[in-house]
């Protein structure tokens, strides 16, 4: 049996009795145990709690003792179009983050790889990484200080050049771009590290061979580097899709707060849930939205994984 390895092992595995498999792989199982426990305790155990979305929750009776109210908590959300509105905002923001983010990250990683000067590489990489060290808390404060109407740096500049200052905090239309910018500003340097690491992992003999064959930089990028980033990209993509109904709560919250002028373009599911909990002491409605978020996200990922599996099973997540 010991000789059965790699592909053969996988093929032979199902034939083994379960207990035998258990025994053979006990060390590997034990190595996974802490992680398994972690996810059981912090992710699976709270799951039955989603029942709260169907109750009129009260502290005394707890989640399962509170009166069952069916879909009442969902009713208005659906009727008013709020749910659709939140879904649209959340999904569009995430799509923009994913698509533009990944393109930028890949581009930066490749460019970084092209740079010969060690010092330049080092300094620029450090600088690009800086934004990730700033917490979203601070980003909100910086944005306010740059963008506010009365004393903001941007409007001071506009005034100094004789222009008309802009009322940024009351124009919902601008905010998707500001949020996108902040998100890219903060995440790109950090995200490109994963791609950069993948590039560094490319078999250097391949690149050397290409150079001997007279490939230009562009050809090298196009035919060797880009294809080699595909697996990383697909994994990142699937993961991002898993979170497409979630959002960078901290960023949205710290930038917008309770400025309701901007809700139409900036309210995402997570900020809605938080505001509902905060201002209304209403855990049931907020959980109803949370549950919807999970189910919708789940369906979306199952679908995309199914799609990926059909195109190239190697890249499917499961």
């Amino acid at each position: 049996m010991k000789k059965n390895k790699t592909g053969a092992a996988a093929a032979a595995a199902p034939k083994k009795p379960f207990l035998k498999k258990l025994k053979d792989s006990r060390t590997l199982l034990l190595m996974c145990l802490p992680a398994i426990l972690f996810f059981i305790v912090f992710n699976y155990c709270p799951l039955p709690g989603v029942y709260i979305a169907f109750t009129n929750y009260n502290f005394r009776d707890g989640i399962f003792g509170s009166p069952f109210v069916g879909f009442k908590n969902f009713e208005f959300l659906i009727r008013s179009g709020e749910l659709w509105h939140l879904t649209r905002n959340t999904v569009l923001y995430n799509l923009a983050f994913i698509v533009i983010g990944n393109v930028l990250q890949i581009a930066l990683a490749i460019m970084l790889n092209e740079i010969g000067s060690k010092l330049f590489k080092k300094v620029s990489q450090t600088l690009m990484f800086l934004p990730y060290f700033i917490s979203v808390v601070l980003i909100g404060a910086i944005a306010f200080n740059i963008l506010n109407y009365d004393t903001g740096a941007l409007n001071s500049l506009i005034r100094a050049t004789g222009g008309n200052p802009i009322k940024i905090y009351s124009q919902a239309g601008i905010w998707p771009f500001i949020i996108l910018f902040c998100n890219l500003w903060q995440q790109t340097g950090y995200g490109s590290v994963v791609y950069f690491a993948s590039i560094c992992g490319i078999d250097s003999s391949m690149i050397e061979a290409a150079e001997v064959d007279g490939a230009t930089s562009w050809q090298r990028i196009r035919y060797i580097i880009l294809p080699s980033l595909k697996p990383t990209f697909i994994i990142l993509l699937l993961f991002a899709l898993g979170g497409i109904m979630k959002g960078n709560f901290g960023l949205f919250w710290n930038l917008i707060g309770n400025n309701s002028q901007l809700y139409s373009t900036t309210n995402i599911i997570e900020t809605f849930v938080y505001r509902t909990m905060m201002s209304q002491n209403n855990f049931a409605t907020s959980s109803a939205v949370g549950l919807y978020q999970s189910i919708f996200g789940f369906a979306l990922v199952m679908f995309s994984n199914w799609l990926v599996k059909r195109i190239d099973p190697d890249y499917a997540l499961f």
């Binding site: 992680a35 398994i36 996810f39 912090f42 992710n43 699976y44 155990c45 709270p46 799951l47 039955p48 709690g49 989603v50 709260i52 979305a53 989640i63 993961f239 898993g242 979170g243 849930v273 938080y274 909990m277 855990f283 907020s286 959980s287 949370g290 549950l291 978020q293 999970s294 189910i295 996200g297 789940f298 990922v301 199952m302 997540l317 499961f318």
Partner: peptide, 20 residues
């Protein structure tokens, strides 16, 4: 793997997790 990945797909949400 699926057991772990599943948690990114389906989470209990803020209130239930907090109560737990």
């Amino acid at each position: 793997s699926f057991f772990i990945y599943f948690t990114t797909l389906f989470s209990a949400g803020m209130a239930p997790t907090f109560i737990w």
